[in-house]
Design a protein around this nucleic acid. Structure first.
Lengths: 152, 152
DNA sequence: GATGAAATATAAATGAC
DNA sequence: GTCATTTATATTTCATC
């Protein structure tokens, strides 16, 4: 676990919102020089707090207008079942996220499809045929807001 | 909706994995010059397919070792109730994601906390006191894998 | 329309203090 | 931490297919 001061938190908050801004501009907002800001960012990367930078894609623009969250309960458990399920589910291109969870469900999946008809195809041919699959519950995404989360 | 060729898809796949790589290196992998690659990336940004770049943070390193997914059913619905709920829930710093969904639940929340005791505090003081909140279901995150998703 | 080569602008990275 | 500098990358220009 990493010790952060208030400036580090401001840097993380700013870059969590928009990772394209450069060290010079970000530093000016914080009253810091470009090298000082850059070294703080590098320290956050080297310490593993920042693990990477990823693209935000508009899947609607790509023709994928339907996103569904599936809660999955396995019918058969045990080490092999979990591994089989995970191997098979990660091979489905429409599955964006696989979350192994504890609670009413065993896995939560984020699935995207072109439309409802396409989603039905994915559900019937790919999801319901997964090894060990049991009960499945679905929620269709209407809108989503992501926030930076707490930073210490 | 945007027309993409195979090279655009390869660029998106590569940048979705790691948005830090530069146009020159990425272009060499694809047999393309640096300006050609850069112009394609810019085109994807201008067309709105790429909506931004965000940091990937290790919340465990920040001291937040517990992530819980909450399914929330509202007790009272209607336009005002939804807006009140959304305004209040987005003001909770531990809430990383607010998803308005259709199905068994009305909202799905991704909540992070320092530990289970901290999560109980957030749940009792912040979540269960949200305006209009009804049934709540919880799943604790064990592990997670994100994949690029389909790209056309 | 697309590209690549070359030139320029900007940001990243380093060194000295 | 700053400031000055070097190095790398992003961005524009232009000729070409």
């Amino acid at each position: 676990m990493m010790e952060l001061d208030e400036i580090d938190r401001k840097i993380l908050r700013a870059l969590a919102e928009d990772a394209t801004q450069n060290a010079g501009a970000l530093g000016r907002c914080l009253g810091l020089s470009q090298p000082a800001t850059w070294r703080r960012i590098k320290r956050l990367q080297d310490s593993g707090v920042i693990t990477g930078r990823k693209l935000d894609l508009d899947y609607e623009k790509l023709g994928f207008g339907v996103t569904v969250f599936l809660g999955v309960k396995l019918a058969t458990k045990g080490r092999v079942s979990l591994e089989d399920f995970e191997r098979a589910v990660t091979a489905i291109p429409e599955v964006q996220t696989v979350e192994h969870v504890l609670g009413l469900f065993d896995y939560r999946l984020r699935v995207t499809a072109r439309d409802i008809a396409d989603f039905e195809r994915v559900l019937r041919r790919r999801i319901m045929t997964l090894p060990g699959i049991g009960d499945v519950e679905a929620n269709v995404l209407l809108s989503e807001e992501r926030r930076p989360g707490p930073l210490g």
